[in-house]
Nucleic acid binder design. Structure first.
Lengths: 199, 199
DNA sequence: CCACAGATTGCGGATTTCCACAATATGCAA
DNA sequence: TTGCATATTGTGGAAATCCGCAATCTGTGG
């Protein structure tokens, strides 16, 4: 799924002009005429950002935003509105919207915001995939290796680990070496940093 | 320094009525007639939250906000404004303002926001106090010790660190031992975990 | 029953770390 | 100038880690 700006607006003219603007700047776009249409098409794997109109027939932009948040959407959302409304802007941003811009707006500015949003999404995805790959590595450890790893992360020396697990130092060394290999690290410090934030 | 709501507004009537409102709900207040006055009184140890008027003679609310951010202010900031301006609200919130409310507003709502802000500040301070103690430890390291620590955290062995810093292994060992002592850790792993999340 | 994976252990040598003792050089403040 | 903190280096030995080679024991699944 290639990164993409998803436009949701019930005004076809606006969709088309936004799409043209973004495409001309190299940003892939997909348009939806209603919040419901986008909601139906949404899936967790979508990558990119959203441009939501505030006022639409049926479900509004903020309502769609809330619904997507419920579903676990992580794409940055930029709201577009013709009628400035401070409380609405405040509410949207406090709920985590990426931006809130009033139409008409400077084309350049808007495109820049979209590009920033796409960049943010790409970064978030990169970070998330990192966490996933770490978990994958973690899962291929055997029980013993995990136990040893815990104790290593507790800052204990092999000798103490051996005592605690009632096994020989040599065995600890073997597990240690194997888990380092599996986790793709060369030192205990690297391991600690790889798992920083976890457990 | 007891938690407190700092009011900055050039309209004395508003300051007084806000102060009365907040005091009546048990929130300690301090009022300032201008951004400059507050800026002069500000210090890092202040705890609580800020209520800033947008338009004031001299330095504006947003300008004060920026200035305080530069100085490292961490108190939540609530903007108050009579003239709704979406771009300004968006800008303030994207810079980290806690809230942006239009006057006139529901008294109850405003007090609730202030209380939320005070709560947030208290939580942040609680979380930061842990980090602060670590930073204190960090600050009593000498330059060399810090350099060595960086390389240790990069997972490098003493030999490599010695090469990189163009000093002997022995010296690295000395710095290493000293910084471990100062940081109160016994192994590199403990050090990495102590600093997990930083740098 | 056999193959295979995981857990276990020992040996021995290379490498590294840990530390006490000792010493030199520099820069800054009293 | 003296004293103190910092940075630097060396020697040498004890302790720990790292690692290849070899081997045993125990389940699980074919």
């Amino acid at each position: 799924m290639t990164p993409c700006a998803y436009l949701v607006d019930d005004d076809e003219a606006i969709r088309d002009s936004l799409a043209w603007l973004l495409e001309s700047r190299g940003v892939c776009c997909r348009s939806f005429p209603s919040a419901e249409d986008f909601l139906a098409a949404w899936e967790p794997a979508l990558a990119g950002c959203l441009l939501l109109d505030i006022r639409m027939d049926g479900m509004s932009g903020p309502e769609l935003f809330d619904a997507l948040n419920e579903l676990g959407n992580r794409m940055p959302v930029i709201f577009l509105t013709g009628h400035g409304d401070v409380p609405m802007a405040v509410s949207a941003l406090k709920k985590g919207a990426f931006d809130f811009v009033e139409k008409p707006c400077n084309d350049n500015e808007l495109v820049n915001r979209v590009i920033e949003a796409l960049q943010l999404d790409a970064n978030q995805r990169a970070a998330a995939s990192g966490a996933d790959s770490v978990n994958e590595l973690l899962n291929q450890l055997t029980t013993r290796e995990r136990q040893v790893m815990e104790l290593i992360l507790a800052g204990k020396l092999n000798k103490l680990i051996a005592d605690e697990l009632q096994i020989s130092m040599r065995t600890v060394e073997v597990h240690r070496a194997k888990l380092f290999d599996k986790m793709g690290v060369r030192t205990a410090v690297e391991l600690a940093q790889l798992l920083a934030g976890k457990r």
